[in-house]
Simulated assay, not measured.
Amino acid sequence: MNTLRAAIVGLGKMGLSHAAILTAQPQVDMVAVCDTSVIVTSAFKKYGKAKVYGDFRKMLRNENLDLVVIATPTKLHYDMVRAALEHGVHVFCEKPFSLNSAEGQELVQLAESKGLVNQLGYHNHFIGTFREMKRLLENGVIGELVHFSGEAYGPVVTKEKVGTWRSKSSEGGGCLFDYASHVLNLLQEVVGRPVKINGSLLKQIYSKGVEDAVYTLLTLENGLTGTLLVNWSDETYRKMSTSLTVQGKNGKIVCDATEIKIYLKQANAAEGLEAGWTVKWITDLAIPVGYYLRGEEYSAQIEYFVANVRRQQPGTINTFEQGLYTDKVIEMIQNAA
Rank of each mutant, 00 (worst) to 15 (best):
E86R: 09
R166Q: 13
L137I: 13
G48R: 02
K249P: 13
R131G: 04
D178L: 12
P96H: 01
N335A: 15
V279D: 15
H182V: 00
H18E: 07
H125E: 01
F92R: 02
L187C: 06
E94G: 00
N124H: 10
Y179D: 13
L136Q: 07
L324S: 00
S113I: 02
T245Y: 11
L186E: 08
S233P: 08
Q25I: 06
Q247F: 14
D55H: 05
V33M: 03
E235H: 10
I205F: 06
A19F: 09
K203M: 14
R193G: 11
K45Y: 09
T225G: 10
E171F: 01
G276E: 07
V108E: 01
E274L: 12
M80H: 10
G121R: 01
S299F: 01
L273R: 04
I317P: 10
V69P: 00
E112S: 10
A19C: 10
K159D: 13
M240G: 14
V309F: 05
T245P: 08
S42E: 15
V38K: 15
G10S: 06
G121Q: 04
G248D: 07
A152H: 09
K49G: 10
Y206W: 09
E321G: 08
D178Y: 14
K168A: 12
F56E: 07
P96A: 02
E94H: 03
G10Q: 03
G172D: 04
H123V: 11
